[in-house]
Amino acid sequence: MKKIVFCFLGLLAVLYTASAQSYTFNHGPYLQELSEHAVTFVFTTSDKGFSWVEVKPDGGEAERHYTVRNGLRDAYNTFNVIRVENLRPDTRYQYRLCSKQIADFQPYKVTFGDSIVSPWRRFSTPDPKATACSFIALSDMHQQPDKLGRLLNQAGVGSADMIFYVGDMMNYYDNEETPFRSFIDKSVELFASEKPFVLVRGNHETRGNMAREYARYVPKSSGKYYGAYRVGDIMFIVFDCGEDKPDDFWVYAGLTDFDGYRTEQAAWFGELIRSKAYKSAKWRIVMNHFPPLSHMESDNPERHGIQDITDKFLPLYNQAKIDLMISGHTHAYEFMSPDKYDRLTFPVIVNSTESVARIDIDGRTLKAKVTDTGGNTLKEFTISK
């Protein structure tokens, strides 16, 4: 009898181990850089493998898409970033992930293990003639995914077209699981497999011994965190504010040059606002983790980054006919308006750690509503053109 029990327990242990080690998609998929003609899929597998994405328009035939670098398809990896181009504007697509585990990779022989396929999911490319767009913006969640989920649901994430994370979604980055646990997994659970989030890097995302690898989670064709995105007749401008203290502050150990980086972005923005694409946009929305003005004392080292933004960007902001800016960083909600701040020509929503902004644009009308975690309305206003 004892032998039977031991054999049964041994079999259970084997089955449990096999189950625990089964090959799976363990993070994602989530969409990045969705445009009229392209989209990027990001996902991970539990072991090294060979992965691809199958994409088809509704009612059409599926095509396989791989990431190819210098003639080699990505393989023997767990982190997958696959860009699909030549899509049609304003079109509904379906996609699924496919992967084969690589059990052994020798110079002249590759041995495959399990094969896995995800369910079909959907996404739609934007309409270049769209005059309406709804988006949500929040920041400073600092690794609190449950609160993130509550705020997203409160703001109606199901009916939003885009979600902007305006910085400091993590405390720092020193583990490859941190971005997933902090906000990406929750985003996938709620929306990110079918519509994109746009990450606006905050000062906390520049911290930690893996911060220089953060870009792979939010891949950009330009290779830059900052940039401009046109959705119909709406232009979104995203800045990357850098750290809040001076570059020579002791804690940075001489490893940063954010003053130079902000100068680079100011020069870029100066060119952008003279472009036809910018001038022809009906609405211009700016996202920057730092607000454009600081309330801190002049000798506070944490004022430096915001003051650099004020000095280098504010004159450009005031020339650029911005309709709305959304920021964070201070952990205190504020609505900065030209009526209150004579140095501003545009309104600024400064989200706190407990607030979320929902913006609905339809033709010549922009409606904004900011609420807190208790469901209380902090600010509601309309801009008409």
Rank of each mutant, 00 (worst) to 15 (best):
E54D: 12
Y217T: 14
D161A: 10
T40I: 15
S115Y: 05
N175S: 13
A267T: 11
M1L: 13
F290Y: 14
Q32G: 10
F249Y: 13
F269K: 11
Y229E: 09
V356Y: 03
V5H: 06
A320Y: 04
D362R: 15
T371W: 00
F346A: 07
G208D: 02
I237M: 13
E194R: 12
F269S: 06
E63F: 10
T78M: 08
H289V: 09
M1A: 15
Q265R: 13
D372Y: 09
L148N: 06
S35D: 06
H331C: 00
C98V: 13
R92V: 06
K56Q: 13
S352F: 02
L9N: 00
T24N: 02
D323Y: 03
R262F: 06
K129F: 04
A155R: 03
S182D: 14
D114V: 11
K220D: 10
T345Q: 11
Q21I: 00
L190N: 02
T45Q: 05
A160I: 10
I237A: 11
E213V: 05
A357I: 00
S193F: 02
L344T: 09
T24Q: 08
N300P: 01
Y23I: 09
R92M: 05
K369G: 00
Y172M: 09
S221A: 13
R121P: 00
A160P: 04
K379M: 08
I285Q: 05
I361D: 04
E194T: 14
S159L: 07
P219G: 15
V348K: 04
R96C: 05
F43Q: 03
E354M: 05
A277Q: 15
N171L: 08
Y93A: 07
V68F: 08
H304M: 01
M287W: 02
L72E: 09
F41S: 07
F6G: 00
L12R: 00
E380I: 05
A192K: 01
R212A: 11
D140G: 07
G227L: 07
F381S: 05
S46L: 05
W120L: 09
N318L: 01
D259R: 15
K379I: 02
Y217K: 14
N351I: 04
W268S: 09
D360L: 09
H204G: 02
M1I: 12
W52G: 07
Y225G: 07
E194G: 14
G60K: 12
G60H: 09
D233G: 11
G305V: 03
T330N: 03
G328H: 03
D185Y: 10
S298I: 14
E205C: 04
D372E: 08
G208F: 02
G10A: 06
F135P: 03
F290W: 08
R121G: 00
M235I: 12
Y30T: 05
P315T: 09
T78K: 11
A357K: 00
V166P: 00
T24Y: 00
D114S: 14
A281C: 11
V53M: 01
T263D: 15
Y76M: 08
Y341R: 09
P128L: 06
S115G: 01
P301L: 02
D104T: 13
E176I: 14
S337K: 10
K100E: 11
T44R: 10
E177H: 10
Y229R: 12
H329I: 03
K282G: 12
N171Q: 10
K100H: 13
P338D: 07
